[in-house]
Amino acid sequence: MNIFRILGDLSHLTSIIILLHTINTNKSTTGISLKTQILYVIVFITRYLDLFTKFISVYNTLMKIFFIISSVYIVYLIQYKYSQKHMVKQDLDNFKVEYLLAGSLLASLIFNYKFTPLEILWSFSLWLESVAILPQLMMLTRTGEADMLTTNYIFCLGLYRAFYIPNWFYRYFAEGHFDKLAVFTGLIQTLLYSDFFYIYYKNVIQARSSKLP
C-alpha cells in the first residue's frame, strides 16, 4: 500500500470518528442528513459482499467491517437514539434519493466488469457512493450555514477522495493497476466535493470575512 492510499483511508476513518464523536458529545444529530447516511449503509453492504467470498488482508477485512457497522450505527443514532423526528429541520432533508438509487442501478447494469449479481452490486455501490453525499450537500446549501461538525466531516470525506487520485496514479505506474470503474466514479465524486468546497468558500468564508469590520 502506498502513502496516498493510507492517508485516504485514514481520512475516511477520521470523518466517521468525527461524526460519531460529535453526535455522542452533543447528544444531537442536527444538521446530519439521514438520507446520506442510509445511502452509505447501502454502499458499504453492497460493496463488501466479497467479505464472504474472498480474503484480501486483515487490514482490508477490519476496515470493511468497521465501515459497515459504523454506518448502521450512525443511522440508528439519527433514527432512534437522538431522533430528529420532532425537529422542523428534518424536512430540509428532502432530496429525492430515488433518482440516485435508480440512476446508480441503471449505470451498474450498463457498466460492470461482469454481468453477475456480485459484480453488478459492486459497480452499483461505486456509482451510489459517488453521489451519496448530495442530500447532505443540499441540506447544507438550504440552511446556508454549516456548523463545524458538518464542515469537518465533509472536509475529511473530500480529503479521502482527493488522496485516492494520486493513489491511482501511483498504482498505475508502479503496479500497472487500473480500475476504470473505480477511477471514473471516484473522479465524479471528487468533482462534487470540490464544487461544494468552492461554493462553500465563496458563500460562507468570504461572506464571513467581509462582514468583519
Binding site: 475516511h12 470493511k64 466488469y113 493513489n167 480500475d179
Partner: peptide
C-alpha cells in the same frame, strides 16, 4: 481467460 481487476481498495 479474462483479466480480473484486483479489488483491494475500500
Amino acid at each position: 481467460k479474462e483479466e480480473r481487476v484486483k479489488k483491494d481498495e475500500l
